[in-house]
Every structure is written in structure tokens, then in C-alpha cells.
């Protein structure tokens, strides 16, 4: 009984941690971009203000839409939040870890995406159709790369739960298999950029609907729905980022506060890196985005090959 209560408490702690800290990354990215543009920029906590403001607004629905349009933001946010339970975050161990939870991890993201795409098609707007089509195309490729990365990591760590995959407290063998891990990290970073619709795949700040991917899909959402979608985006970035952190920070100090501190600074570093990339790079032409993702796939394949050569088989 006591164990069950403990599990529930850890679940809530994890959830609160994700909810509280995820929009912060967006703030850091914004600040970095402003710094590069020579501006002061919006405050670090702007994403929190945005979400709070949107939560207090009413909603406008298109007459074309159905129940799917109204449910999709909630389904997406719920799915993404639950996927966060599978990932360890610094001092917080993953509340749910079991053999093969990587599969669930990927499919939860797929579920969220499926409903967002359906919601976009529900409006009957041609712009949102364009965005949905692009999002679906790119996610097909990134899913393959994601699974190949997981397979490479599984071969390295001989485990198949996310916690075990990234070492489960035991540091990954960077010495022997460093190149493979580096490739996995690069490939995963490319996937992260694509899945969170950042530059060079998608520009979250454009104002021309024809060129947008993710932003154009949510044109018709407003008020609470939009807040949920924004929040969902932030959580997705946070969860994928924390997976990346778990590979990159291969040690644990066994001190919860210390670990969490290292984790948080790592995440901030990640956000700064994304901000820098957004400032110094232009976005790719749309027909070149698939090549970007194919290279993520090939990096993963390369990592697999190296693991097979070095893995002692």
C-alpha cells in the first residue's frame, strides 16, 4: 500500500516538474534569438504568460468542425504528458518503466500527431490541409530514424526500457562506442528539431501561411485549445530534450538535487543551442527537408553499424 502511494506521489511530482519547467525552454530559445538579433526580447517567462492569457480567453469554433477538432488538443496534450512519464529527468526517475516502453513512447507521439492532423483537416481549410500533409510526411521519416536510434541504443545497453536504454544510472560506454553514441545524439537532435518544428525544418515565427508546417495546422484553434496546443508543443520539446540529456549526461551523483540541477542546466544549454541554430541558419527549402530526415536515418544506420562492429558480436 505504502509503495502504491509512493508511486502515485512520484507520478504527480514528475507531472508537476514537466508542467512547470517545459515552457521555460521556449523562453530561453526566444531570449537567445533576441540576443543574436541585438534585441532585449520578451521576458524569459513569456511562454507562461502566453499560456495563462490564452487559458482565460473564450473560444471560436468553425461551423465546419466537429467533435474531433475540440478533442484533439486535449488528446495531444494528454498523450505527450504521459509520454513524459517514461523518461527519467535528472533526479526524477521515470515513474513508469518496463520492457519495451520505447514503442509506447513513439506511438504516443504518433497518437498526438494523428489527432492534430485530423483536427487540421476538420476545418476544411486548404492551408491547414497543406500543413497537415507536410507534418505527416516528415513525421513518417523521423519515426523510422527514431526507431533505428532506439535499436542502436538497445544494442549498446542490452535493454529496452527508456531508463535502461540510456544507461539506467550506469553510464553508457562512451569510451568504446563513442562514435556510435555521437551519431545517435546527432541523429536524435535532428529528429528533435523536426518533431518540434524548429529551424531548419520549420520556422515557428513565419507569417506566411503557405510556408508554414506546424503553425498553419493550428490556425483555427483559439483560447483554451490553443493554450493546450502550445503547452503540448513545449512538453514535447521538453520530453525529447530530456531523453537527449539522459544520453549526454552519462553519470549520476546520487544526489537528487544535484542531478536535477545538472539536468536543468543541460536542458537550458540545449535550448540555447536550438536558439543559436535558429539565429544562424536559414530554414531549408521544403523539398529538401526529406533529405535532412534521410540523413538522420543514415546517421542512425551508421551508428547501428558501428555498434555491431564494436559490440563484440
Amino acid at each position: 500500500m505504502a509503495q502504491k502511494i509512493l508511486a502515485i506521489i512520484s507520478l504527480w511530482l514528475h507531472l508537476t516538474f514537466i508542467l512547470v519547467s517545459s515552457p521555460f525552454l521556449l523562453g530561453v530559445i526566444g531570449k537567445t534569438k533576441a540576443f543574436f538579433a541585438g534585441k532585449w526580447g520578451p521576458p524569459l517567462f513569456q511562454p507562461y504568460y502566453d499560456i495563462a492569457k490564452l487559458l482565460r480567453k473564450g473560444c471560436v469554433y468553425s461551423t465546419t468542425t466537429t467533435w474531433i477538432f475540440r478533442a484533439a488538443p486535449m488528446i495531444a496534450l494528454a498523450a505527450v504528458l504521459v509520454s513524459g512519464f517514461l523518461v527519467p529527468m535528472g533526479g526524477f526517475n521515470a515513474p513508469a518503466q518496463f520492457w519495451g516502453d520505447v514503442i509506447l513512447f513513439v506511438y504516443l507521439f504518433a497518437l498526438a500527431r494523428f489527432f492534430i492532423i485530423l483536427a487540421a483537416l476538420d476545418t476544411g481549410s486548404s492551408f491547414e490541409g497543406i500543413g497537415a500533409s507536410r507534418e505527416a510526411t516528415f513525421s513518417c521519416l523521423s519515426e523510422v530514424a527514431l526507431f533505428l536510434n532506439f535499436t542502436a541504443l538497445a544494442l549498446i545497453s542490452k535493454n529496452l526500457s527508456i531508463t535502461g536504454l540510456v544507461g539506467g544510472g550506469v553510464s553508457l560506454p562512451w569510451q568504446i562506442i563513442g562514435p556510435a553514441l555521437t551519431l545517435v545524439v546527432i541523429s536524435f537532435f535532428l529528429i528533435l528539431l523536426c518533431e518540434n518544428s524548429r529551424i531548419p525544418v520549420d520556422d515557428p515565427a513565419t507569417h506566411l501561411e503557405l510556408t508554414m508546417i506546424h503553425e498553419v495546422m493550428v490556425l483555427d484553434h483559439s483560447g483554451v485549445d490553443l493554450a493546450y496546443i502550445l503547452y503540448g508543443g513545449a512538453v514535447k520539446l521538453f520530453v525529447l530534450g530530456s531523453f537527449l540529456m539522459a544520453i549526454l549526461i552519462p553519470f549520476k551523483t546520487q544526489n537528487i538535487f544535484m542531478d536535477t540541477g545538472i539536468f536543468c542546466s543541460g536542458m537550458t544549454g540545449l535550448a540555447v543551442a536550438i536558439g543559436v541554430i535558429e539565429s544562424v541558419m536559414a530554414r531549408l527549402r521544403l523539398n529538401r527537408v526529406p533529405y535532412f530526415l534521410i540523413s538522420a536515418v543514415i546517421f542512425a544506420v551508421f551508428a547501428l553499424i558501428i555498434t555491431l562492429v564494436r559490440g563484440g558480436h
Binding site: G58, Y61, S62, T63, T64, M74, L77, S125, D220, V224
Partner: peptide, 24 residues
Amino acid sequence: IFAILFILKKSLLKTRPVRETETW
């Protein structure tokens, strides 16, 4: 979690205007 989000949305929208219009 979905249920919580649903209830939250319902309670937030109780006092706010919800309009229906053409697709943007």
C-alpha cells in the same frame, strides 16, 4: 489526464464566450 483537461476546459469556458463562425 484527458478527463482532467476536459473538466478544466469546461470550467474555464463556462464564463467565457464561445462563438461559431466560418473557417479562417
